[in-house]
Design a protein around this nucleic acid. Structure first.
Lengths: 211, 211
DNA sequence: GTATGTATATATCACTGTGATATATAGTAT
DNA sequence: ATACTATATATCACAGTGATATATACATAC
């Protein structure tokens, strides 16, 4: 039995919204989930095949705009069951590699000035990211009231609903989208706070500086 | 020319402190750098070989306690130059996958109750982690004053120094170690904050709840 | 003493996942 | 016509993981 990792269930999860092609999945992740997920074709296509082989999905020929051929994948009952099972399992916390921390560790003692300069750059990156996320938050938030997405927002729609139900669905999806942006903002802010503390302590260490 | 990723420079960086064996590197990372780094033997041994092949390190037979054989790797001038170059480059920000966010995205609308339960579990994990890191912080901090490590702290020592210089080195290393723990604490706190916001918004959405 | 367990030390394998690239076609712009 | 962009599928070399195999020396218990 093949190993079922996060990518396996991520793809299965996308199919649980609506039947999709490999191309659709790549676009969905790159456009709407880029705050917290990434995926490559090198995993998508083999995994779709394995999902079919495992009985978790079926494949069918489809057509899109302009009569282009595409392979649509649809989740099966068995697949949905496996997904539900995974969804209820606690979050797996694996170590997140942190290049900033590694460079601090390797260079902090050897070359303090350069390390401080790196931390300043890093703070700049995070400050910019925070600003960007705040803009995206403000652009997304109105849909919470209106029940209508701004033009450029791509989203997972299980199916077209009509009228009030459609608006309600948009509001629910917007809330979740806002929460994921909010996570990014909080993460960036935590990093900015750390940068300030680190620069301050490296510039004025709480012990006599040799020289 | 082989690709030089983060693992490549991480290992080169460890060798820049002192000559080490593959086993030493694995232990160093697992014991002292586990807050922000991980590494497997499957990368260490091949990478050490490639570092030698690239002229960035040399290898020599060594002996440790009990006359056990070990292969020591020593950084070359060329290797140190390449490391210095990498160290000065800005931090590469790649997308960090976040299983909590993925599950929120996939299940938040479909099964709010289960999603809230997952977030509560996640908050529990993060709260525990934060508590653990606070303890480790308090255990490490005294060395900032005393200049002496607590018994169980493993560390990178370029070489044995004597007296006052040794104490100063210990203080500098402790500061950096404390900063990396602090990063973990801030990250956990940001996640806890997010959990509170998310639970509150999912339980009382800012729009009329259908039902 | 000898058996058992643990720490030291190196190495490889199957597998997951990435980034780059190749290929082909249909619609759009110059 | 030509070039460019978007749609769509696929594969490759490589990075990195987790598990496992192997061997030896020291520590302890019986």
């Amino acid at each position: 039995m093949t190993k079922k990792g996060k990518t396996w269930f991520a793809i299965l999860g996308f199919l649980s919204w609506k039947p999709m092609s490999g191309y659709d999945i790549k676009n969905l992740v790159d456009i709407s989930l880029s705050y917290f997920w990434s995926i490559s074709y090198g995993q998508i296509y083999p995994t779709l095949k394995r999902l079919v082989a495992a009985g978790y999905a079926t494949t069918e020929a489809g057509r899109s705009i302009g009569d282009r051929k595409r392979n649509l994948f649809r989740i099966t009952n068995e697949g949905q069951k496996a997904l539900d099972d995974w969804m209820s399992k606690p979050i797996d916390l694996s170590i997140q590699r942190d290049e900033m921390q590694l460079k601090l560790f390797l260079g902090g003692q050897r070359d303090t000035a350069q390390t401080i300069s790196l931390i300043r750059d890093f703070k700049g990156q995070q400050t910019q990211r925070r600003a960007q996320l705040l803009i995206e938050y403000d652009e997304t938030a109105p849909a919470l009231e209106s029940g209508e997405f701004a033009d450029d927002i791509q989203w997972l729609e299980p199916e077209r609903l009509s009228g009030a139900r459609q608006k309600q669905a948009v509001r629910e999806q917007t809330l979740i989208f806002l929460l994921s942006i909010r996570q990014g903002i909080l993460k960036a802010e935590a990093r900015i706070t750390w940068c300030d503390e680190a620069i301050s302590l490296l510039e004025n260490p709480p012990y006599a500086n040799k020289s």
